[in-house]
Simulated assay, not measured.
Amino acid sequence: MTGERHLCAGEDLADGGVGVRFVVEVGGRPVSAFVVRFEGAVHGYLNQCAHVPMELDWQEGQFFESSGLYLMCATHGAVYAPDSGLCVGGPCRGASLAKLRVEERDGNVYWLPESPYEAPAG
């Protein structure tokens, strides 16, 4: 496993605002991922709906629905709790987004790769 990866400055993530996308490797293939801020904390997930593995954001980085309280899949309307990734409404109720280990320190946000989600080679 490789070391941590810098994603963005902490100030780039507003509560319930635009997220930052990045790429992880799952089983040797690149997969979109994202980090957002909710209630002051950062949370990272694979950018794949638990219903059908399609990207959630309706425009790049737009993961929250209009209230800023839930993450929402633009394709089928599945709604997720931003702090746990649990689907709380829609076609995948009870399933969860794949959570990634992220950390905020010294004004920056980092992804800490863990199996089965690794940093892409290169």
Rank of each mutant, 00 (worst) to 15 (best):
M1A: 12
M1I: 03
T2P: 02
L7P: 05
A9V: 10
A9R: 09
G10N: 09
E11W: 04
L13D: 06
L13T: 08
L13P: 06
L13S: 07
A14W: 08
A14M: 14
D15R: 02
G16K: 02
V18T: 01
V18W: 00
G19H: 05
V20H: 06
R21T: 06
F22S: 07
V24N: 03
V24R: 07
V24W: 12
E25T: 05
V26Y: 02
V26K: 05
G27C: 00
G27I: 03
R29N: 04
R29H: 07
P30N: 14
P30F: 00
V31R: 04
S32V: 06
S32W: 02
A33G: 09
F34C: 13
F34S: 03
F34W: 10
V35H: 03
V36K: 04
V36Q: 00
R37L: 12
F38K: 03
E39P: 07
E39K: 15
E39R: 15
A41K: 04
A41G: 13
G44Y: 01
N47A: 05
Q48W: 08
Q48F: 01
A50M: 12
A50V: 00
V52S: 15
M54Q: 08
E55H: 04
D57L: 01
D57I: 12
W58T: 02
Q59S: 11
E60F: 10
G61F: 15
Q62C: 15
F64L: 09
E65Y: 04
E65I: 14
S67D: 07
L71W: 08
L71P: 13
M72W: 00
M72C: 12
A74R: 07
T75W: 01
T75V: 08
H76Q: 02
V79C: 15
P82C: 07
P82A: 11
S84Q: 09
S84K: 11
G85Y: 01
G85E: 10
C87V: 15
C87S: 13
G89M: 12
G89P: 01
R93Q: 11
S96I: 03
L97R: 09
L97I: 02
A98N: 07
A98Q: 15
V102P: 03
E103M: 11
E103W: 11
E103Q: 09
D106K: 15
D106Q: 11
D106I: 10
G107W: 02
N108E: 14
N108T: 07
N108L: 00
Y110D: 09
W111L: 14
W111F: 06
L112Y: 04
S115C: 04
P116C: 02
P116S: 03
Y117K: 00
E118H: 00
G122M: 07
